[in-house]
Amino acid sequence: MIAKLLKYELLRRKGPLTAFAVIFIVLEGLLLFGLFKGDAWIGLSIFMTILLIGGTYVFVLLDPIISFYSDIKNKHGYMLFLTPVNGYQIVGSKALFGFIQMFVAGAILFLTFVLNSKLTTHLYFTGTEIESLWNRISHDFKDFLPTLGQIIQFLVMVLLQWFNVIMMGIFAITLNKTIFSDNRHSFLLSLLMYVFLYVIIQTVTVAILAPFGLFGDMLRVQTSNGSIQGSLNVGKYTTLGMILNAFYILLFYFLSGRFLHKRVDL
C-alpha cells in the first residue's frame, strides 16, 4: 500500500517537481554563465549559488508539509482518506516521500557543486595551485579538519534534523486539525503550533544535553580563542543529535498517525 501511496504522491507532485527542476536548471545556467564570463560576473555565480542552496532547502522542507496540509484541508483529501489505509500509512507515505525528495535534492545539489567546483578549478586554477593550497590548508588547520567519518556523521545528523522539521510540520497540522477541525485560520494556527512545538523541542534538547556537559563546552568555546580542538568532543554532540532527532521523528510520526486515525474530523 505504501508503494501505491508513493506512486500517487509522485503523480500529484509532478507539477511542482517539474517547476522546481526548471528553476534549478535556469539558476545553474546563470551560475555557469557567470563562471565562464569571469571578472564581475563571478558575483552572479555566487548569488546563484546562494539561491540554489537556499531554494532547494526551502523547497524540500516545505513541499511535503504543504502537500499534507492541502490533503487535510481540502476535499480532494477525501480521495486519500477514504482508501483502506490507516493514519500511520498515510503519514508514513508523506514522510517517506519527503525524505526521498530531500535525499535526491541533496544528492543533485552535491553533484552540481562538485561539477561547478571542477569547472572553476579548470577555468581559474592550475593543478599545482590547487595542490599547494590544499597542502597549506592541511598543514595550517590539521587540528581542525574533520575526518571522513565525522563528516558523514555530521551529514546524517543534518539530514535527520531536516527530516525532523518536516515531521514536526506534519504533526503541527494534524494537531491543529484534531483540536480546531474546520477553522478559517488553520494555516496560521498550524504555524503557531509549529513554533510552540519547536520551542518545546529545543528546551527538551537543551535539558537532555546539559548532563553531557553542554554548558561547560559552550563556556570553553567562548573563552578558548580558537584552540579548543582535542578537549571538545564534537562527535558526542553529533551522535546525541542523531539519537534525539531520530527519537523526535518517531514520536511525531506515531502521534500524527494515531491522531489521524482516531481523532481527526476530515
Binding site: 503523480l11 500529484r12 509532478k14 476535499k75 480532494h76 477525501y78 480521495m79 477514504l82
Partner: peptide, 8 residues
C-alpha cells in the same frame, strides 16, 4: 456530496 478528485 462535494467533488473530491485531485485536480491533476
Amino acid at each position: 456530496t462535494e467533488p473530491f478528485f485531485y485536480d491533476y
